[in-house]
Design a protein around this nucleic acid. Sequence first.
DNA 1: CGCTTTTTTGAACGGCGTTCAAGTGCAAAA
DNA 2: TTTTGCACTTGAACGCCGTTCAAAAAAGCG
Lengths: 217, 217
Amino acid sequence: MTLEHDTVRETLIDATIALMDEGGLQAVKARALAQAVGVSVGTIYNLFGNVDGLVLAANQRIYADLNTVGQANIGPIEERLAQRIAQGLVGDTARDRVRERLLGLSEVYVDFVAANASRWSAVLTFDRNRSTAETPEGYVEQLDAMIGIIGRVLEAAPRCADIGVRHQTARALWSSVHGIVTLTYFSGDVATSRDRTWALIVILVSAVADGLFVEPA
Amino acid sequence: MTLEHDTVRETLIDATIALMDEGGLQAVKARALAQAVGVSVGTIYNLFGNVDGLVLAANQRIYADLNTVGQANIGPIEERLAQRIAQGLVGDTARDRVRERLLGLSEVYVDFVAANASRWSAVLTFDRNRSTAETPEGYVEQLDAMIGIIGRVLEAAPRCADIGVRHQTARALWSSVHGIVTLTYFSGDVATSRDRTWALIVILVSAVADGLFVEPA
DNA sequence: CGCTTTTTTGAACGGCGTTCAAGTGCAAAA
DNA sequence: TTTTGCACTTGAACGCCGTTCAAAAAAGCG
């Protein structure tokens, strides 16, 4: 049945993420998945083509989770910004608002990574392989949605008046925060990962935000 | 003998990089390496512990190459900066000089990646696994050296007066450019990789450099 | 109910990293 | 020169991996 069919799909994705949480991407193996869900290894190949296809589907859901968290936090970010301005913690210029919003988004991202460290590490580790499996539909859209959120914040920055530049800036910012998380969060002492990562992100995002209000040379 | 011993070590590292160039990290396999060099698989384990250890040694040499290229280009970057100032292409403020130097370093990095795409991709793909093999000596030092170069450029920036902040800023910048390269260079059309990557780096590095001369909120 | 089609199954296959008993080369001892 | 000792090399063998596909089971159908 189609219903049962989709149920098994979802259950396999669940099992994949569970294995990622336990032992990282290395722990995601065909036989372990089959045994965990109660199907044979062949079923994985019927539903996802191969193991990479299943990992890709799991990655897509993890991306969707991040996107959901991001979307859900736009409101709170605005509220916190208003509070900080009211309390005089930050200024009330366009520059200050852009910087604080970008920091708010970054904090949401870092919190997500901290709360989903193992599975996020698996996503980052895998994405570099691509392998044979083709990217499932909606995969790119998730990323574009997140970059779109950043782009909307950047509308207030003089250097981002052009929509092309704005989109590039949003993508560059996303890539940068991603790079810091990749090199800083997932290295060194786990206990200090979040703090070390956040410190670098604050420095970078603040500098970028402020720089976007400086007129170019 | 020890001499022969070291020769085999170097030859194996050569073969590893050659395989990376041909087929990426996936092509680096114990049997293929052994056959290419003319030793048995066991020798790899005697000399490097396991295949990961050999890959790590190869990565270290690739890092050293990048470092060498970086060091060798500091002079030319200064010359080009002086020329651009003389020709009126950029200003002569501390802000302009920091920005142009950072862009110069970034360009060296992007050129290196473009010229060594396959093996650099292998380095980035592998570093996320770490696996069992311990990092060879001098590995961390190579990275610190490159961050040190960036840090020296940042000495002219007001926000980086504090040495701790300066070091963090240098690391954040390195991570950011790394992130842009990872997400942009190694995705999409190969023919446009360099241009797309460079466009994002210019936007980001320029904004950061300019932002570092804005007094904080 | 029999017949056809679809889906599931899991033993088998090739390839991988890794191991380790057996072999090899070579310098020191006799 | 011959023998001994030993550090190093070897490659067949082992276990595990992703993947396949003939056979079995299940589902659809008149």
